[in-house]
Amino acid sequence: MTETPPRMREEILAYYARGKEDARLREGGAPAGRLEFWRTQDVLRRLLPAAPARVLDVGGGSGVHAEWLARDGYAVELVDPVPLHVDQASRLPGVAAHLGDARELASSDSSYDVVLLLGPLYHLHEQAERVRALAEAGRVVRPGGLVVAATINRYAQLHDLLREERYFIPEHRERTDAVLADGRHPYHDEGFFTVAQFAQPGEVTAEFADARLAVEGQYGVEGVAWLMGGVEDWLDDPARRETVLAACRHIESEPTLLGASGHLLTVGRRPSV
Rank of each mutant, 00 (worst) to 15 (best):
Y187H: 13
F193N: 09
W68Q: 00
E174Y: 05
P52G: 06
W226I: 03
R212A: 13
V64E: 02
L69E: 03
G138K: 05
V141Y: 00
E36R: 00
P238S: 11
L69C: 03
A70T: 12
V95H: 09
D22W: 07
E174Q: 13
L124K: 14
S90G: 12
R18N: 09
D177Q: 13
L25E: 03
D189K: 10
V221R: 05
E254F: 12
R249F: 05
V147S: 02
I251N: 05
A70V: 08
G183C: 10
G138W: 04
N153W: 05
D160E: 14
R18W: 03
P201L: 06
A128M: 06
G61P: 07
H250F: 09
A32C: 09
I169L: 12
V221W: 04
G138I: 01
F37P: 00
L116E: 06
R103I: 08
G262M: 12
D236S: 15
Q200Y: 05
V140P: 00
A96H: 13
L245P: 02
A97D: 11
P201V: 05
V43I: 09
A128R: 14
I152K: 03
F192S: 12
R163E: 09
L158Q: 10
R240E: 15
A239I: 15
L47E: 15
W234F: 14
L245Y: 02
D42G: 03
E77K: 06
G223Y: 04
I12T: 15
S272T: 10
A260C: 12
A106C: 00
A75T: 10
